[in-house]
Amino acid sequence: MRFVFTKLGLLLLTLWAAVTLNFLLPRLMPGSPADAALAKLAQNGPVSPATRAAVEAQLGVPTGSMFDQYLQYLGNVATFDFGVSYTFFPQPVAGLVAAALPWTLVLVGLVTIIAFIFGTLLGVLAAWKRGTWLDTLPTVGGTFASAFPYFWTALLLLFFLGYVAGWFPTSGAYGRGTTPEFSVEFLLDAIYHAILPATTILITSLGGWILGMRSTMINTLGDDYVTFAEANGLRPRTVAIRYAARNAILPNLTSFGLALGGVVGGSLLVERVFAYPGVGYLLYTAVTNQDFPLMQALFLIITISVLLANFIVDILYGILDPRTRR
């Protein structure tokens, strides 16, 4: 239990550091959002002091000392008040993020977890049946599929299954006529829209998990405790799962943590290609429109998701490996 508290303390500490950096970094940059806006206006002619005051008032130029601003910022973060988006004026940033986050978490997050579980199982099987078709097929297939660039696989699927065959929709998370609600029809529609992006992620990430698990598993199969377990006449399945695979999965948890942490930030490409209304798409919009409040909120969300994923993996390690519990 002490192990969990230590890790939790560490999580809170890094979280505080991340929030503080997120506060400091924009303030260390020269200029201000108001300057940027005024510079744009200045291209059309001179800007009067009144205009400047108006822009500054609209954007909310900070007042008070740096420390006061910091306290205020902490308060705002705690209450999820990230200000108002420039692009989607006057919608609050928190609302935009809250609307986008579930789509990314469910699509990319779920598929990442599925790919990890499925790939690990295939890797175990490949190592255990080394040299048979159960080894060759997933290994060669996985290498082949993950060698394609991500967006290229996406475009192939879009073109053939979406455009040519017309079996799947080519963009969006749900049909044009529907609105998000908790009904069977809407859920089915959402799943129908998620199939192509999900397949893309699965195809490109599965191979890595298969190969990673296969090679660590082959290593543990040569370990003495596996030989000893066989010498003691344990059932082959027990040896494969509880002795070899159980140890082989440990190093792969680290890469799983990285993959999980990259879900929110790394969804940009897939969501852009499929015009999927998730965090990645939102980030793309924010960056192209220089929407500072939105960007800042998204960066914070991405940081937090990486920290949380690492925390989850740390706890998983604690459960799976008694050596880390001390």
Binding site: D224, Y225, F228, A229, G233, R235, R242, N247, L250, P322
Partner: peptide, 25 residues
């Protein structure tokens, strides 16, 4: 085994080592 140091599964308690053998046979 020769390197008895590594003959035990590091993530399984000693009790479970015995129980695995009892269960297998």
């Amino acid at each position: 085994l020769q390197s008895g140091m590594n003959a035990l599964n590091p993530v399984r308690s000693i009790r479970n080592h015995f129980f695995d053998i009892f269960a297998a046979h």
